[in-house]
Computed example of a mutant assay.
Amino acid sequence: MMFERIAPEQHDTLEGIAEPSENALLVGHAEAAATLASAYRAGKLPHALLLAGPRGIGKATFAYHLAYHLLRHPAAAGAPEMLAAPDTDSPLFRQIAMGAHPAVLHLTRPFNDKTKKFATLLTVDEIRRVNRFLSMTSHDGSYRVVIVDPADDMNTNAANALLKNLEEPPARTVFLLITHSAGSLLPTIRSRCQMIRLQPLAADEVETVLTALGMPLPDDAGKRAALLERAGGSVRDAILLSEFGGLEIADTVDVLVGGASFDFAKAHRLADAVSGRDNEIRFDLMNAHLLDIVTQAAGKAAETGEIARAGNFARVFQELRIAISDTDTYNLDRKQHTLNMILRLHDTLRM
């Protein structure tokens, strides 16, 4: 049976893979789901939740399942003890999936009709839609849900605009902020949200999702295990690693940034491989892996009490994000960007 997409295309849409809004399968995160379902039944659901965890583990899918649960059961006291499994044939599910439900606002990188490309950041104009959304009366008195996906993509103006909404939240409204790197958000935003840390999926859980999606896995048990281990509990990473050359790109980047000396020849070969006109996904994979390396390094430094080192990595993270955005916005040389960023990270890890 062929996959039929009903959700709007997003900046990170993968062909043949369901968007979070249309994904009825939520694997893992049972403890977090039970905690929030219980809080809702007790009338104690926080007005803002920060769903934090690595990219591709199901945070956005979790957000949409929570939204479905709130709208499917507007009377909190009678809601089930676990998140309601979406009925894919119901008008409610299809409305939410299509982005057409009046009680759900999904904020992400907008599409630019002039450039025919998605923006590289979540802009303040998108966040301003919240005020118009909240000014409308809920049609049946149920919750209104604002999903910011991911909050990491907000520029400073957008973050400050959202902060105003978080400071004075309307009744029966919940903000679900998705973040791959909570430390990159404004402290004032973090302080106004309850953090829900979602953990990477187990290898067998990733395999379950891939099988449900109809994604082929290596027949060789060793190669399959290596792929699942490298995916690090992320379904999205597993797909990208297996289908778009991400495994080879990540391996090459790791060797380059982790080497005692910098291999310029290998760096040039990688830059050539990811910077061509038809290599959008490979270029994005390379950038995403660089950001993941910095995020993990910052986290390890913070855990060991190396505050100055963690702060340095946080600055590098922002520099990388700006460089990625500028390269896309101003159509800069992608090969030079790749060389600059890999060398920058190699030198930073040596400090």
Rank of each mutant, 00 (worst) to 15 (best):
R144G: 01
R144E: 11
V145T: 10
V145H: 04
V145I: 15
V145N: 06
V145G: 04
V145C: 11
V146M: 06
V146W: 05
V146Y: 04
I147V: 15
I147D: 07
I147N: 07
I147C: 14
I147L: 13
I147W: 09
V148N: 02
V148I: 15
V148E: 00
V148K: 00
V148G: 00
V148Y: 00
D149H: 10
D149Q: 01
D149V: 02
D149I: 04
P150R: 06
A151Q: 06
A151E: 03
A151S: 14
D152H: 06
D152Y: 05
D152T: 05
D152F: 09
D153V: 09
D153E: 15
M154F: 08
N155T: 10
N155M: 05
N155E: 14
T156L: 15
N157P: 12
A158K: 10
A158Y: 11
A158T: 13
A158H: 12
A158I: 14
A158W: 13
A159Q: 07
A159I: 07
A159N: 03
A159M: 07
A159Y: 07
N160V: 03
N160I: 06
N160L: 13
N160E: 09
N160D: 12
N160G: 07
A161G: 05
A161N: 04
A161M: 11
A161Y: 09
A161D: 08
A161I: 06
A161H: 09
L162P: 03
L163S: 05
L163H: 02
L163P: 00
L163K: 02
L163Q: 03
L163M: 01
K164E: 05
K164H: 05
K164Q: 06
N165D: 11
N165I: 05
L166I: 10
L166Q: 07
E167G: 00
E167C: 00
E167S: 02
E167P: 01
E168Y: 06
E168Q: 10
E168G: 04
P169E: 03
P169W: 03
P169S: 11
P169F: 07
P169K: 02
P169D: 03
P169H: 10
P170Y: 10
P170S: 12
P170M: 13
P170W: 08
P170N: 10
A171Y: 04
A171D: 13
A171T: 12
A171I: 08
R172C: 09
R172I: 10
R172S: 13
R172D: 14
R172L: 14
T173Y: 01
T173Q: 07
T173S: 12
V174K: 04
V174F: 12
F175G: 01
F175L: 11
F175Q: 00
F175E: 01
